[in-house]
Deep mutational scan, measured.
Amino acid sequence: ETFPLDVLVNTAAEDLPRGVDPSRKENFLSDEDFKAVFGMTRSAFANLPLWKQQNLKKEKGLF
């Protein structure tokens, strides 16, 4: 299941849709939104070091 970017960005855990893991908001973006937000594919993002993934998520309001 995916959700629009505005539902996930800068949203407190208690305000997220049911079933969304607040530590993994990026997994609930569509592939198109994911690429638009991070400028890379999911596989490229997954290959980044964890610290870099976290920094990007913070920068984009998805942490």
Rank of each mutant, 00 (worst) to 15 (best):
D33Y: 04
P17W: 03
S23V: 08
P4I: 05
F34D: 00
E32H: 12
L29F: 03
G61D: 06
L50D: 10
K57M: 05
V9C: 08
G61N: 08
D15M: 04
E59N: 08
V20A: 05
L29E: 04
M40L: 07
L56N: 01
P22L: 04
R24S: 10
L48P: 00
F63W: 15
E59W: 07
D6H: 15
P49A: 08
N27M: 13
T11Y: 06
K35T: 13
T11I: 10
N55L: 12
Q54D: 15
F34V: 01
R18L: 15
G61Y: 03
N47D: 14
A12G: 10
W51D: 11
E1Y: 14
F34S: 00
E1P: 14
L5K: 04
V37G: 01
M40C: 08
F28N: 07
P17M: 02
A46I: 12
D21R: 02
G19H: 09
A44K: 10
W51P: 08
R42A: 06
K35F: 14
T2P: 05
V20M: 02
V20H: 06
A12I: 09
P49I: 01
T41A: 09
T2A: 08
S23N: 15
N27S: 09
K25P: 07
F45H: 00
K58D: 07
L50I: 13
K58Y: 10
V20E: 07
S30L: 03
T2N: 06
G61W: 04
R42I: 03
L48T: 01
K25C: 06
G61Q: 05
D33V: 07
Q53H: 00
E14R: 05
V37K: 02
K58G: 07
K25Q: 04
D31G: 06
V37E: 03
L56Q: 02
Q53F: 00
W51K: 10
P17T: 01
E1G: 11
V9N: 06
A46D: 10
V37D: 01
N10P: 04
R18Y: 15
E14T: 08
S30H: 07
A12Y: 07
A12W: 07
T11L: 11
F28P: 02
K25R: 13
S43V: 13
L5Q: 04
L56C: 05
G61E: 03
D33E: 09
V37P: 00
S43P: 11
F3G: 03
S23R: 07
D21W: 03
Q54M: 14
L56D: 01
L29R: 01
L48E: 04
A36F: 13
E1S: 12
K58L: 10
N47T: 13
E32G: 10
L5M: 07
N55C: 13
S30Q: 04
P49M: 02
F45S: 00
R24C: 09
P4Y: 03
F45P: 00
K35S: 13
E26H: 02
F45W: 09
R24Q: 10
A13G: 08
F63S: 14
K35Y: 13
Q54F: 08
K35D: 15
R24I: 07
D31N: 09
M40K: 01
A36R: 14
D6S: 14
F63H: 15
W51T: 10
F38H: 00
W51A: 12
Q53D: 00
Q54H: 11
F63Y: 14
D6P: 07
K35E: 14
K25S: 05
D15Y: 06
D15A: 05
L8M: 05
P17I: 03
P17E: 05
A36E: 13
F28E: 05
P17N: 03
N10W: 08
D21V: 03
G19E: 14
N47H: 11
E26W: 02
L8N: 04
A44Q: 13
L16D: 09
F34K: 00
A44P: 00
N27E: 12
F28M: 04
N10E: 07
P4V: 03
L8Q: 01
N10I: 06
P49N: 05
E1H: 13
P4N: 09
L29M: 07
F38S: 00
T2G: 05
A12R: 13
Q54V: 14
L62G: 04
K58T: 09
N55E: 14
V37M: 06
R42T: 04
T2V: 10
T2L: 07
D6F: 10
F45V: 00
P49W: 00
G61H: 05
T2Q: 07
G61V: 01
K25T: 08
V7Q: 09
L29W: 04
A44L: 10
S23H: 15
K58H: 09
K60T: 10
K57D: 00
N55T: 14
T41H: 09
L8S: 01
L62V: 04
V7P: 01
L8P: 01
E59L: 11
A46R: 12
K57R: 08
Q53I: 05
G39R: 10
A12N: 11
V9F: 06
L50M: 12
A46P: 00
N10T: 12
R42Q: 08
M40A: 00
A13S: 12
Q54E: 14
M40W: 02
R18F: 15
E26V: 02
T11P: 05
E14C: 13
L48G: 00
F3H: 08
S30P: 02
S43A: 14
K52R: 13
F38R: 00
V7Y: 15
K57I: 05
N10K: 07
F63I: 10
F34E: 00
L16A: 03
R42D: 01
R18S: 15
L5S: 04
L62H: 03
E32D: 12
L62T: 01
D31Y: 05
K60I: 08
A46Y: 11
L62D: 03
E14Q: 12
D31L: 08
A36K: 11
M40D: 00
V20D: 07
A13W: 14
L5F: 08
R24P: 03
S30T: 12
D6M: 10
L56T: 02
L48H: 01
D33Q: 05
Q54R: 12
D33H: 04
S23F: 14
K52D: 11
K57T: 03
N47L: 11
P22I: 07
S23W: 13
E1A: 13
L48W: 02
F28Y: 15
N55W: 12
A12C: 14
L16E: 06
L48M: 10
L16I: 06
L56H: 04
K58W: 09
P4M: 04
F28Q: 06
R24G: 06
Q53V: 01
E14K: 09
L29T: 01
P17R: 01
L29N: 01
P4A: 08
G61L: 06
T2W: 13
D15R: 03
L29C: 02
W51M: 10
L56K: 08
T11R: 05
F45I: 00
F28C: 06
